[in-house]
Design a binder for these strands. Structure first.
Lengths: 124, 124
DNA sequence: CGTATATACCTTGTGACACAAGATATAATG
DNA sequence: CATTATATCTTGTGTCACAAGGTATATACG
C-alpha cells in the first residue's frame, strides 16, 4: 500500500510545481556562475536567496546531466573539510549556454507578461 | 522501429521545452480570461500574440483537466459554423485561481530575476 | 572500539505530464 | 461519394523531478 496522492492536491499546486521545474536548470547554473559551489551548498543557496526549495534527489541528477554535456565542470576537493566535496563551476561552453538561456528567459518572461497585459484589459 | 531522439537535441532545447511547459496553463487561462475561445482558436491566439507553439495533443488534455476542476467552463456552440465548437470561459472560481497564479508568476519571476542580478555581479 | 551524529554524494522507482500521431465527427465542395 | 477543411478527443511514449533509501567519511561520546 502506497501513498495516495489521488485527489489530495489541487490543480494550482501542480502548476506551481511545473513552473518551478521550468527554471530549475537556470537557477542551478546561476548558482555556480559567479563562484564554484558544491551540491548541498547550491541547495542552501537557492533556499536562502530565493526560497526555491530543491532537494538532493533533484539536484544531483541535474548536475550530472550538466556535467556530462560539458556545461559545468566538477572537481573533488578533499582534505579541507570532514567530508570531500564536489565543486561545480561553469565551463566556457557553459557561460555561452547561460547567456543564451538568459536571453531566452527574458524573451519568455516578456511573452507571458504581454499575455497578462493583453488579458488584463478584461475588467470592463 | 521508432524515431530515435537519442542524442539529437542539445540540453538547451530540452530546457526551453520545460520552461515553456511551466507557463502553459497560465497562458491558456489568460487566453480565455477576457473572452471565451475554443480549442484551435486558443492555439492560434497564443501563436500569433506570443509565438508560443502549442499543439492539439497538448491543449485538449489541459482544457479537459481545467474543466474537470471547475476552473473553466465549456459550452458547445453549433449551428453558426460548419463544425460545432466548444467554447471555454473562465469560471468565477477560475478567476480567483487566475489571480493567485498571477501572484505566483510575479513572485517566481522576481526570484529568478533576483538570482540573475546576484550572479550578474560575476564579470569582474 | 562500537555507535551515533553530521555532512556529503548518488541511485532507484514512481507518477505526472506534454506531445506526436492518429481517430472521430460534421459539413461543404467537386 | 470521395475529398478537403475544420474541429475535438484519445492513446502510447519518453522525459523528468522527486521521495526514499543507500553509501562514504569523519568526529564525538561512553
Amino acid at each position: 500500500m502506497r501513498k495516495r496522492p489521488v485527489e489530495t492536491d489541487k490543480p494550482l499546486d501542480k502548476w506551481r510545481e511545473q513552473l518551478r521545474r521550468g527554471g530549475l536548470e537556470l537557477a542551478i547554473l546561476l548558482s555556480v556562475s559567479s563562484t564554484p559551489r558544491y551540491g548541498l551548498e547550491i541547495i542552501r543557496y537557492l533556499q536562502e536567496s530565493t526560497d526555491l526549495v530543491v532537494t538532493e534527489g533533484t539536484i544531483y541528477p541535474i548536475l550530472g546531466r550538466l556535467t556530462r554535456s560539458g556545461i559545468v565542470e566538477a572537481e573533488w576537493i578533499s582534505g579541507e573539510t570532514p567530508h570531500p566535496r564536489k565543486y561545480y563551476r561553469l565551463s566556457n561552453q557553459g557561460r555561452k549556454a547561460l547567456e543564451e538561456m538568459l536571453d531566452h528567459w527574458n524573451s519568455y518572461r516578456s511573452k507571458i507578461d504581454h499575455l497578462v497585459e493583453t488579458a488584463g484589459r478584461m475588467e470592463s
